[in-house]
Amino acid sequence: MSPALTTDDIIINAKIHKLFYGNFFAVRDTHLAIHHNKITAFIGPSGCGKSSVLRCLNRMNDLVRNFRVEGSVFFRSKDIYAPRVDPVAVRRHIGMVFQQPNPFAMSIFDNVAFGLRLHGMTRDLADRVELALRRAALWDEVKNKLKQSGLALSGGQQQRLCIARAIAPEPAVLLMDEPCSALDPIATGKIEELMKDLKSRYTIVIVTHNLQQASRVADMTGFLYVDTKQGGRTGYLVEYDRTEAIFQDPRDPLTRQYIAGAFG
């Protein structure tokens, strides 16, 4: 580990031993620590379980019936998989942006205000909405049409609206599940810039199938691979390190092979 990273600034400490969907053994032995105010990327081939791991971090997987995890995910000093924990309360602190832009069928303003209203943060509502839209670098484009439907925006704008919506209630961590996969290169560039701006304030964890993207934005990178030896398709964490280390000097031959294949 780099000396710059101390255990003090670990915000999430995930130890996923086994993760199942029904009888499907999806992920094994994935232990990693997410550092405060850093961007962490998960990379790996499709089906390696990187989205499953991400969705463990705010208990989104609880919405899948027959989902089961063995292990623990500590958010600061609390295990979010402890028996009495309410997943709804977890997601208020660990927000999420999805692969497909999913603005609600309501106005731009109401989209951003949705989370704020949910959590009773209605003081200075208009100011908070503006702040979130400014942080999401969308304010200048929408300030004159806040009453219009969020569905009328372009794909890239919709995704930035979703980011504004996610950061408005001030979560500590923002999970992003392939947030650019539905977007064109220009919109992707804007979102990447945005992530770098946001990391001073939020911890970001991103899943991406695009290695260049990970190398451009991430401070830390985790490489997951899918293990087909035991007959199933179980993903696991191969290597987790600073991004430069993963891309320039990986320790595991599997990582080297994957990175070389993608760039070569």
Partner: peptide, 19 residues
Amino acid sequence: IPLDEPSERPFEEAIDFDY
């Protein structure tokens, strides 16, 4: 609320996750 004001949430805020 100025853009660069530190977030109102201190790092080690008491978090209540319990149901």
